[in-house]
């Protein structure tokens, strides 16, 4: 068997892909909206296709579009995208455990394709945060699924931009999909605390530019989690002493 066919038959690859496909409709709705938005903001169809395939980061693309339209200097657009993508910097520290043993080229290849949902689904499958058999095919299955679920609707949106009316509010379908996904992640007290703190912080810090409210929300949720952990330990110690 060729390596590709062997991969497609790998049970971990299939599991990684199918667990991701549950989120397919939500990813697709967002991809479609992003595709439409690129062309509506004035980007030509070939450049929009190039942006979709090469940048492959919806929130950064949406942040860059008005800047491109306004003729902002190149480095300003890049700096803005970097800020919007800062959460990926945090994620990359978490991927490190699983990819560390690979050569750098391979690490970069995998890292480039690792979207938000990939980390979430991967963490749910491997909560122990250590290397286990079958992880890489599982990861690759998930990345292939996200890539297809995002790029095909995005390209469709680019081509059909003038036909799809924006007032349908299709982007909200993506929000609803992420809502269901988020509910699925609320498994215990620590995840509830993280979600409530992050949601509140994101609203409170919404006025910040460049989606930096997301970074504020992450920081607040992490800090709250650590504080609760400390309080729990102190409680255990008190019980142990009594």
């Amino acid at each position: 068997m060729t390596p590709l066919r062997a991969l497609l038959k790998d049970p971990d690859f299939r599991r990684g892909a199918s667990e991701m496909l549950a989120f397919g409709p939500g990813i697709a709705a967002w991809g479609l909206v992003t595709g439409v938005a690129m062309v509506k903001s004035g980007l030509s169809v070939p450049l929009a296709i190039f942006m979709s395939l090469a940048v492959y980061a919806g929130s950064a693309q949406l942040a860059a579009l008005p800047m491109l339209a306004a003729g902002a200097p190149m480095w300003v657009v890049w700096a803005a995208a970097f800020c919007v993508n800062l959460r990926f910097v945090i994620y990359s520290a978490q991927w490190r455990v699983f990819f560390e043993h690979l050569p750098r080229n391979r690490r970069l290849l995998y890292g480039y394709f690792a979207a938000d949902l990939n980390l979430i689904v991967f963490q749910r499958a491997y909560p122990r945060a250590q290397r286990e058999a079958g992880q890489l095919p599982f990861f690759i299955g998930g990345t292939v699924a996200v890539w297809l679920c995002w790029q095909l609707p995005s390209l469709l949106g680019i081509v059909l931009a003038d036909v799809i009316p924006t007032r349908w509010g299709l982007g909200f379908a993506g929000t609803l999909a992420v809502l269901g996904l988020t509910y699925g992640l609320l498994s215990d007290r620590s995840t509830w605390v993280a979600a409530v703190v992050a949601g509140t912080a994101a609203v409170a810090a919404f006025a910040l530019p460049l989606k930096l409210n997301i970074l504020v929300a992450i920081a607040a949720a992490v800090a709250a989690g650590l504080m609760i952990e400390q309080a729990g330990r102190a409680g255990e110690r008190l019980k142990g002493n009594s």
Binding site: Y91, A93, A129, V178, T182, A202, V203, I214, A220, V222
Partner: peptide
Amino acid sequence: KRGLKVAPLAALTAVVVPEIVM
């Protein structure tokens, strides 16, 4: 590292909640 485990969940919530209530 332990604390950052909730980062993706926090990021998701941070994207969704403003989309709903703002």
